[in-house]
Write a protein that binds this DNA or RNA. Sequence first.
DNA 1: CAAATCGTAACAAGACAAGTAACATGATAC
DNA 2: GTATCATGTTACTTGTCTTGTTACGATTTG
Lengths: 151, 151
Amino acid sequence: MRNDSRLSRMLHVLIHMDKHQHSATSDMIAKMLNTNPVVVRRTMAGLREQGYVRSEKGHGGGWTLVRPLSDITLLDVYRAIGEPHLFAIGPADDQPQCLVEQAVNIALGDAMKEAQALLLRRLDSVTLDKIAADFEAKLTAHPATSYSCAS
Amino acid sequence: MRNDSRLSRMLHVLIHMDKHQHSATSDMIAKMLNTNPVVVRRTMAGLREQGYVRSEKGHGGGWTLVRPLSDITLLDVYRAIGEPHLFAIGPADDQPQCLVEQAVNIALGDAMKEAQALLLRRLDSVTLDKIAADFEAKLTAHPATSYSCAS
DNA sequence: CAAATCGTAACAAGACAAGTAACATGATAC
DNA sequence: GTATCATGTTACTTGTCTTGTTACGATTTG
Ligand code: FES
Ligand code: FES
């Protein structure tokens, strides 16, 4: 569990949802993600709140994709899951009045801000249908590959 | 303890070591960092191995800066402490054979690789004396500020 | 009503930096 | 040469965050 994989997982789910027309239950998605349905509901809640997917209770219910993949960027998904912390490193807060610590944290913070801006810009520039197209390309390149779990 | 602050802490220490000529004990540094001496020794071990500082046992011992700040970049320090993980997010590894998961992880990984490259490039472009100069500038701008802990 | 399905709260597990305690080792002072 | 100072190292605990799990309630369909 070394890294936060929510963004990666949600992208995976959304693209699969686009392939299958019918709705997917949390149980099915959980098997896809090799986890359990509560984790799925927890993570997908943000996507529902932002209007990217819809969930329906009861018999025959489940999750459905509401908007086309071409309308959703990686950044949208990142925001929808609550903009989790991107970096594992960060400033020290040991002597907040020390001007050296301040200067260090500013230098470090500047570099991190730039890297974060670049990353978010990159996420914003890619829509999910682009990744789906990459997937299709792989599929035609290696048609023999079994690309599926149980779903 | 939300973030890994080793890099920030070590930069802080190295700059202070340059200001004070005499050697600093792990105890003194620990007070500076609001922590305890074992953490200091643990974190500074890498800096010693890379030859940026030297440590001496016994009465009158402690840590001394071996190389001038202008010879040390932020990247050098980052490497010396063992290149800890930069990102808190990462790829999912739930269905490694799924071509969708692969495509997602490639897209995400590309963006992260670029951001990481930018960050490391930035760290490489800044030497510690640059931060020390920023500190001096602050000091002359606000000479009344008490900028010191107990050290 | 019964079964399916989501929503949510509460709690356990795993990972990892940070904090702490204990003890060995080496160097200096007297 | 002994006491003291200081680092080196190991082992263990703590804090925090994602992930996993269990339990239960609410809603929809058959
Ligand atoms: S999880 Fe991607 S194929 Fe089933
Ligand atoms: S810690 Fe920076 S002034 Fe003492």
